[in-house]
Design a protein around this nucleic acid. Sequence first.
DNA 1: TGCGTGAGCTAAAGCGCTTGAGTGAAAAGA
DNA 2: TCTTTTCACTCAAGCGCTTTAGCTCACGCA
Lengths: 348, 348
Amino acid sequence: MSAKRPAARRPTMKDIARRAGVSESAVSFALNDRPGVSEVTRDRVRRVAEQLGWRPSTAARALSGEGAATVGFVLARPAHTLGVDSFFLQLVSGIQEVLARRHLGLLFQVAEDVEEECGVYRRWWAEHRVDGVLVVDPRTDDPRPDLLDGLGLPAVVIGGAPDERHPGLSTVWADDAGAMTALVDGLFARGHRRIAHIAGLPGLAHTERRIRALRAEAERRGLTEVQSVTTDYSDAEGAAVTRRVLEAPAPPTALVYDNDVMAVAGVAAAAGLGFSVPSDVSVVAWEDSALCRMVKPWLSALSRDSVEFGRTAATELTALLDGGPARTVRVPVPRLIERDSTGPARRA
Amino acid sequence: MSAKRPAARRPTMKDIARRAGVSESAVSFALNDRPGVSEVTRDRVRRVAEQLGWRPSTAARALSGEGAATVGFVLARPAHTLGVDSFFLQLVSGIQEVLARRHLGLLFQVAEDVEEECGVYRRWWAEHRVDGVLVVDPRTDDPRPDLLDGLGLPAVVIGGAPDERHPGLSTVWADDAGAMTALVDGLFARGHRRIAHIAGLPGLAHTERRIRALRAEAERRGLTEVQSVTTDYSDAEGAAVTRRVLEAPAPPTALVYDNDVMAVAGVAAAAGLGFSVPSDVSVVAWEDSALCRMVKPWLSALSRDSVEFGRTAATELTALLDGGPARTVRVPVPRLIERDSTGPARRA
DNA sequence: TGCGTGAGCTAAAGCGCTTGAGTGAAAAGA
DNA sequence: TCTTTTCACTCAAGCGCTTTAGCTCACGCA
């Protein structure tokens, strides 16, 4: 309890070796389940290690070629954009669950943009800091896969589309296109013909996928009054765009929002214009969270298990670190949770 | 772009030494701004290093006693509790800003509870993984300061009260008591006599501080119908507690919520019971976010700059790592942003 | 001329761990 | 009985960096 560090010395393998009366190498063999020591010795060494509270120094491990036992995660969003968001904490929490079990650390960094993010990867690689990384928010024209491939840094892209151009990277993705198609299908069945999609950031892979899927579905059904508008995911833009589309001569009867925050803001904006939900206009949020049950009416939402998404991604990365092949795995299509914000289209 | 890692070799000091025609030690001196080399050589070495894209291996650095260049951050909350939350991402984002500038990494982990969190600290210490940690959610009876003090791990406690018992730890705190006093002051002035405080998790230091401050202020003014009820911060409990207190024979005329999520849920719950805000009951959220402007009426809220809070904490930690003394710094008292959810008390 | 001095550099050890190349003794085979 | 194999273990090098001690040479000074 002194002001200056008492700094208890960490036990090293040398300490164990001395106490167990064997050489350091024997200790290494014993502790790493490698052949070369008898079961008796192995047990003794293990006991001594336990007793001393020994843990391998990651630094030393890393230096002797074992990797840093750490995984990197960069969030490239300007600080002020990180508003109310449940997705990332949940995702990270799922990632953790898997990593912690293997005593892998998670190095976390927020960056301003993708360019800075690339710099972080380079630095991490050069500093020998991470064994692999998890990449989020993939873009349609994304420099990161090329970079990571070039550095030979194992990586899992979260939320990207299958990418044949980078066979070294794993991908974990949700079928946004399928979800969008099913969603439009449902809306169509209930009479909706004019649909507005308040999308997220342009350039994000999943934003583009949803937009394309919506357009394709509209064409297939011959719907002409279907549109997508991109935003920055903020409540402000969500509200603004909502007002804009609803003030048109023939306003949409259904609004699909790319996140919960905009959906909530949109409902308020609609109410402000005298539209009531769902009788005048139906609302669906892409992303379910407590938010959706905090407003009246409760919002119908596409729900996915973000924690599980994180677990899956982390599992793929560990597989990659173990020398496994890169894979592309699809997580379940988000399910539509019907609450009170969706109903039949109002008769024209 | 091959399937198996091309694994470009990282340049080491040896490479630089060879290219610059000097010894490794000279390179070390040159690159660390230590005396022992001429300016000419220093420049040459620097140029070669730059050209090779060299970065020191953190592993090697750590091993030769320089520390891991990494800071730890544990969030001890069960995964499902990590709902809609703006505070932590903002906090972390502020922390990052300061750390990144010094090329310090942030090792992030979520744990189930404080006990597991202590285990993480022990492991990090033994594995030589971090040079210091940031501790959040301090409790009234907290084992962490003792542990960290014992390990000699530099630490900054975020949101704790000044702690004379652990002179080795820095503390960054907000004056919750002062804020609460001012808040009650304002409510009192507008005629509120019956106040309910829907608090956060019991046992958290700031929860207790707020509760105590409220009680003290109530006693000072002779208010008898003032109460605090603890919750788990969730919208569900926020709503439930709101219903309970409003159904009392003499319901409160003002509700103070310890976070924005509960406040929003509380407004909805109040509406469900026929109470309108603010004419029947005033509502204040402790923590401002986009959420507060997503509901009608817009919520009055105590606002603080969480990003700046993070910056301050990280700055204190780096000071500690540089060998500076432990300090206790207070961040500005949260400001009340008056919106539409507060008004004069209804006449009895 | 000799000697101390300091600037500029090199050699080498050490941090904690892994690992391939030994070593010595017991067990197995001829 | 002697060789070969196997087993259990030790030695020593090496990972990339820091750091201490030491070495060399030019310079200043008596």
